[in-house]
Every structure is written in C-alpha cells, then in structure tokens.
Design a protein around this nucleic acid. Structure first.
Lengths: 119, 119
DNA sequence: GCGACTAGGTGCACTGTACATCTAGTCGCG
DNA sequence: CGCGACTAGATGTACAGTGCACCTAGTCGC
C-alpha cells in the first residue's frame, strides 16, 4: 500500500465516497491510537476509496480543535518524529455515534436499493 | 411533505449524506420524467436526508450540460410552468452505474461494520 | 387587489478537497 | 562524507459543492 506524497490511491475498485473521511477517521482511531500515516492505511482497509494524506492531517487538526482527538509527538528513531493521535472521551462517544450513522446509511441503502426496479 | 422556499427538510431521523445528491437524483429520474419540485419528494422518499431545492435545480442544470438529462417546459395550468426532466440515453446508463455504486457502498459498509468491535 | 401556494432560479459566503510543494528526520550505499 | 530513497507531517492555492437568503412569476380563492 504505497502512499506517495500527494497520492490519492485511486483503486480500480469502488470505495466509500470522500465525505466519509471524518466518520471513518474517528472510527479507525477507536481501534487504538496511531499516527496519520498509518491511519491512512487503516482507512483504506476500512473501505475508503480516496485517501489523501493532506486531507487526513488537516482533518486531524480539525478534530483536535474540536477536542475529539488529542495528540503528542513521539520520536520514532526510524524516520521523522510521529504525531500520535488518541481519541478523547468526547471522541470515543463520537465514534459510537458515527458507527450508528454508518449503520443507518447502510440500512437506508438497503431499503432504497430494494425500491429500484432495474439491476 | 412541505418544501418551503429554501427549506432543507431536516428530518429528525438520519439520512443519506448530501454527497449522494447526484447519484440519487439520476436514479429517481430513472423512475420516470418529472420536474424538480416533485423530484425533491422522490429523493426524500429515497432516503436523502437534506433535500435543498436550490441544490436540486442547480444539479439538474449541471446534468443537462453533461447531456445526462434533457428538459422541456410544460404549462401546468395550475401554477407556474414546470420544467420536466428526462434521462437521456447516457443518463439511463449513468443511472445503472449509480445503482451499482450505491450497491458497492452498501457492501463496503457491511464489511466495514463487521470489523467494528463496539456497538 | 392581495395573500397563499407552487415552481424555478440567483447571489454569496463558507467549507471541503485535490494537487503540488515544502520541511525534516533516518538509513543504506559508494 | 554526500546523496538518494523513504517516512512523516504540513502548507498554499485554486476550485467545486452547498446552505441560506432572497427574487421572479404563475394560479387560485377571497
């Protein structure tokens, strides 16, 4: 999974639209603290189609301003220092909400797709 | 279902994110030609959370520029004339693609939600 | 004539995002 | 040592999408 600089990992297969960046980012952070670069991998595995590193870093700053995420620098001794992000309590609550949101979207799609005649 | 002027029908229940406006609009148009005002109702029934009339009219113009939609004015004898929109051949093909897209999103969400420990 | 309702549309400010570009750390190699 | 590859994070900018307020214009009932 190579995440080149401004790369946008355009998979041949489809993926979740970019508008899921925020919920997915919070949810994968619920699987344990991590730094942006690795979060990109997790999000990609989660099904997000286009994973833009720049967008992730920006979103992490936004979430930090909103107190859903806290971060601290950690020397890696194997490259530049990493900024490790953790969900705050509010963030963990948000994660639960976002999972519920994704579930709702899935259920809506289920119902909606039933009503579509064509295949 | 009252769609006041700049109304944004904020349902208490959740709904599909606004980023689905384009695919949903094309899909509901596949159920038969219609005018913007009624399309809003169909989209709302389809599960779209926030239905902004202004956004729909704008999107219809965009789709027309892209030759996915054709429109003609029709006097209604019961209010102002309506602009009735029809899918072009390319639009019908796009509708099929968009249904497939929604199906893919649902399947991705299915898999992704399985991997989430919490409930 | 006037207000309610239907239908369509514009203007504008704000947000989100893609893409390019930049900094800076480690490691391996000649 | 000097240099390139790789990892990690960040900014700058231009452009698209959207939310909200507002505007036009038709019919109908009073």
């Amino acid at each position: 999974m190579p995440f080149g600089r401004g790369t946008t990992t355009t998979m041949t297969e489809v993926g979740l639209p970019r508008s899921f960046l925020r919920p997915v980012l919070i949810i994968v952070l619920g699987n344990g603290p991590s730094h942006g670069y690795e979060l990109a991998v997790r999000m990609w595995e989660f099904g997000l189609a286009t994973v833009d590193l720049a967008g992730i870093y920006r979103m992490l700053r936004v979430l930090e301003r909103e107190d859903l995420v806290a971060s601290e620098w950690e020397p890696s001794g194997h490259g530049p220092p990493r900024r490790v992000h953790t969900l705050t309590e509010a963030g963990a609550a948000a994660a639960i909400d976002h999972v519920a949101f994704l579930r709702d979207v899935r259920n809506l799609l289920d119902r909606a797709l039933d009503s579509v005649p064509s295949t």
